[in-house]
Amino acid sequence: MTKKMKIELREEYCVGCGLCEVYCRVAHSQSRDIIKTFKKERWTVEPRVSLVIEKPLSFPLQCQHCEDAPCVKACITGAMYKNELELTLCDEDKCVGCFTCIMECPFGAIKIKENNPSLPLKCDFCFEADEPFCVLHCPNGALTLKEKIIKNVDESLNDSIAQVKTEEVDTDE
C-alpha cells in the first residue's frame, strides 16, 4: 500500500449483518479460510471490530487511526505508535499491559484480548493490506476506503471541518 488510506463509515448504510466481525477474524487467522477459522480457531482469533446495534441504529466500532491519537500519546512504553502511513499500531513486544490506551480511546475501540489478557486488541488495517477485509466484504457500502486527510481527534469525534486544510479525494475500492 502506497497511499495513506482510511476507512470511512457511513452509518446510514450499515445493515447490522456482522460480516465485518466475521471477516476480521478470518483476516487474522492462521488458516485464512473461513470455515477452518470458525471451526478450529474460534477461541484463538477475535475480531477487532465490534458491531453495535440499537435498532434502527447500527454501525461497526473500530479504531479510527486518529492523526492525533490519544492512545499513542498516553502509551507509557511507546508500544503504541504511528507508522509511516499514519496507521496506529501496537508493538506487542513493548507492551506491558497497563491498558492506559484502552481508557484513553474516546471511541472505546480498543479491547482486551480474551485469550491473552495482557494485550490490547485493535484494528491493524489487516496487517497494512491494500484493502482491509471489513471493507472488502461489507455488503452495502457502509465501509469504504478513502484517501486519508489530516484530522485530529476532536474532528474525528465531531466530524467537522479539518483545521489543517487538505483536499479530500474520494477513491473507490
Binding site: V15, G16, C17, G18, L19, E21, V22, I34, I35, T37, F38, K39, I53
Partner: peptide
C-alpha cells in the same frame, strides 16, 4: 459442515 454459527442470518 459449512455453518460457522456466525449469526449473520439470524441478524438479517
Amino acid at each position: 459442515d459449512r455453518c460457522i454459527d456466525c449469526r449473520v442470518c439470524e441478524k438479517q
